[in-house]
Design a protein around this nucleic acid. Structure first.
Lengths: 218, 218, 218, 218
DNA sequence: CATGAATGAGTGTTCATTCAT
DNA sequence: GATGAATGAACACTCATTCAT
C-alpha cells in the first residue's frame, strides 16, 4: 500500500506537472496571440509568457503551428458546445421560437473571447480554416440541416442543403462582423436588437410564402 | 517640336518603363501570393518573378507590405468598380429588380480572381482588413444605405443603418463562402440558383410585411 | 550463513541490476550508433533504446562520449583478444606458418561486427583515435615487433620498428578496406583468397632476399 | 565599345566579388576545421573567420556540409592532380623505377596539408568517405590497374584487380599512417627511408618469384 | 537508486533591407 | 536608374544535462 501511495502520487505528480505545463503553454499562446498578433507570436515569446523554458515547449509541441492549433481546438470546443447545446435545446420547437434562441447562442459564442476569435479568424493562416473553424462550420451545417429537415413543413425553400448553407453562413457572418466591426452593437442591452434583426432575416427567408404573420418585438 | 516629340516619348518611355516595372512587380506579387502563399512570398522571390532586380523593387516599394497593399488596391479597385457600377445602374429600380442585379454583381466580383481573393482574405493579415477590404465594405455599405433611403417606402425595417449592415455583410459572406467553400455552386449554369436564393433572402428581409408576392424562378 | 546467502544475493542482485543497466546502455549505444549514426545518437535516444530513464544513464556515464568510449572499449577488447590469442599461438612458429594465421585473425577481428566497426572508425571523432583504436594499434605493434625480434634470423629488413609499423598498418588497412569497401570479398569461401594475398605480401616483404621459395595455394 | 568596357568590368567586378567571397568561405572552413575540429566548425564561426556575414555564407552554400564538401573537393583535386601526374609520368617505366616514384608522390600528396587531411579523414563523416576520398581512391585504383595490366609480364600475381586494390590500399594506409601517427618519420631527410620501405613491399609483392634482385639503397 | 520533466545555451537558417558598383 | 552581393537581426529548434520527486 505504502508503495502504491508513493507510486501513484509520483505518477500523478509528474502527470499533473506535465498537464500544467501544457495548459500554461496553450494559455500563453492565446494571450500572446491576442496581445502581439500571429506573426509576433514567436515560440520563445510564448515560452517566456508561459513561464516555461523553450525546451519544454518543444517537448510538448512540435512547433508554433501545433500551439496555435491547440488554442483553436480549445476555443472551438467551447464554441461548439454552446452551439450544439442550443440546437439540442430547440430541436423540437417551431421555427419562430427556435431561431432567436439559436441566433442568440451564436452571438454568445462570438462573445466568449472576441479578441482571440478575431486573431484566429483574421490572422491565422493555413490551418485555421482547415482544422478548427471549418470543422465547426461543418458541424453547425449538419445540425441546422437536420433541424430544417425535421421542420420541413414549416419551411418554404426548394433546397434544404442550400438553405442550411445560407443560414449558417449568414448568421455566422453577421455575428462575426458585429463582434469585429460593430462592438458597440453588442453591449448587453443592444444585443436583442441585433438578434431580432438577424432572426427576422432567417425566419422570413425560410418561411417564404408560408409566413403566417411577421412577428416583431414591441 | 521635334525636340518635344523626342523628349516626350523619351520621358514617356522612362515613365512607361517605370510604370512597367511597377506593374510587373504588382503582377508578380499577385502571382507569387497565389502560388506560394503569403508567408513564402519573399521580396526576393517577387523580384525574381517580376524579372527585376531586388534593388529595383525597393526603388518603387518601401517593402513587402507595400507590395501586398498595391495588389489589394488593384484587386479591390476592380471589385469596387463592378459593385459601384451595378449600384449606379439599379439606383432607380425597385427592390425586386435591383436586388438580383446587385447580388449577381457581388458574385461576379468574387469570381474575378478567386484564388487571389482567397489568399488575400485568408492569409493576409495586418493590413488586409484595415486598408483594402474594410474600405470596400465601407463603400458598399454607404452605397447600399443610400439606396435603401431612396427606397424607404418599399422597405419594412426600422433601422436602415442596421439593414444596410445586414445586407452587405450577409451578401458578402454568402458569395465569399460560395467561392471559397462551394466552388461547385459557381459553375456558370448554377450561379443563378445561388443568386436567386440570396436575392430572396435579402428581399424578404427588407420587404417584411410589405412583401407583395414572392417572386421565384420557374 | 543464511544471512550471508541472502545478503550476497541481495548485494549481487543490486550489483547485477546495475551491471545489467550498464550493459543495456552500452548495447543500446552500439545499436543506435549503427542504426542512426554518431550524430543522431543522442543520449535520450540511447536511454530509450536501453529501456532506461535518461537520469539513469547519467548515473552511470558522465555523458555521451563516455558511452561511446565504453562501446569502443567493449568492441576493441573483443578484437584485441582475438589478435592477442592468435599472436600467442603462433609465437614460436616460423614466418610462413605464422603469417596466414595472423592475417586470418585480423580478418576475423574485422568481421566481428563490421557495421559497428565502420561507424566507430568513420564517424566517431575526438576519442576514437585517441582512446580505442589507437590503443589496439599500439598493442598490435608491440606484439608484432616482439615476434619479429624473436624471428629476426628469418627476416631481411633493416629496421624492425619500421617493419612492424608497415606490417600492422598494411594488414589492418587491407582487412578494414575489404570489410568496408569490398564486403563481397569476405564471403566465407572467398576469405582465403584475401588472406592468401595479404599473407604473401607480408611474407615477401619481410623475407626479402631470404625468401626460400614462395608458397602459394594450389 | 564604351558600353562593353563598362559592362564587362561590372559583371567581372561582381563576379570577382562573389568568387572572392566563395574562396574566403572555403578557406575559412579549412582553417576552422583544422583549428577547431569538425564539430566546433559552426557556420557562424566559419562566416566570421571568412570576414563575411552569415547571410552571405548561405547565399553560396546550403549549409555546413556543402562547405566541407567544397573543402574536400579543393583538397582532393590537388591530391588527385599529384597522383595522376605521377602515374602518367611513370606509365612506361618498369616496376622498379615506377614504384618509388609513385610512393613518393603518395607521400607528397599526404604532405600537402596534413592537418587538414587528418581532420577530413578522421572527423568528417557521412560525405567524406562517400564523395571525396572514396572518389580519389577509385581513380587511383583504376590508374594503377591500368598500369599493372600494361606491365603484366613484370608481375607475378594472379588477380590484377585484387593486386591493384592491395597496392592502393596498402600504400595509402602507410603514407596516411605515417603522416598521422609518425610525423617524425616525415622530416625531409627521413622520407626516403619510408619511401624505400614501402616501395620494397609493393615491388616484392608484385614481382613475386619473378623478382630479379632486390634493390636496396646503400 | 530510478525517473523524466525541465532547461537554455547554442546552432542552423531565413529574409527584408541596404548600398557600392 | 538598375543591379545583386552583402548583411545581420531574428527565429525555429535540438540536445546534453540537471534535479525535484
Amino acid at each position: 500500500m505504502a508503495r502504491r501511495i508513493r507510486t501513484k502520487p509520483r505518477k500523478s505528480a509528474s502527470q499533473a506537472r506535465s498537464r500544467a505545463t501544457v495548459e500554461a503553454l496553450i494559455g500563453a499562446t492565446a494571450r500572446v496571440l491576442v496581445k502581439d498578433g500571429y506573426d509576433r507570436a514567436t515560440t520563445n515569446r510564448i515560452a517566456r509568457a508561459a513561464g516555461v523554458g523553450i525546451g519544454s515547449l518543444y517537448q510538448y509541441f512540435p512547433g508554433k503551428e501545433a500551439l496555435v492549433a491547440a488554442v483553436i481546438d480549445r476555443h472551438t470546443t467551447e464554441v461548439r458546445e454552446l452551439v450544439r447545446a442550443s440546437l439540442v435545446k430547440v430541436a423540437l420547437r417551431p421555427l419562430e421560437a427556435a431561431a432567436p434562441e439559436l441566433v442568440r447562442a451564436m452571438v454568445d459564442a462570438h462573445r466568449v473571447s472576441p479578441a482571440l476569435h478575431r486573431v484566429l479568424v483574421e490572422q491565422t493562416p493555413r490551418l485555421g480554416r482547415l482544422e478548427g473553424v471549418e470543422a465547426i462550420d461543418r458541424e453547425a451545417h449538419a445540425l441546422v440541416r437536420a433541424y430544417l429537415e425535421a421542420h420541413r413543413d414549416e419551411i418554404d425553400v426548394p433546397d434544404l442543403e442550400l438553405a442550411a448553407f445560407v443560414c449558417v453562413t449568414a448568421v455566422e457572418a453577421l455575428t462575426h462582423a458585429a463582434v469585429v466591426r460593430r462592438p458597440e452593437a453588442l453591449t448587453d442591452e443592444r444585443v436583442p436588437l441585433l438578434v431580432d434583426e438577424v432572426t427576422r432575416m432567417i425566419v422570413q427567408y425560410l418561411r417564404g410564402r408560408k409566413a403566417p404573420e411577421v412577428h416583431r418585438r414591441g
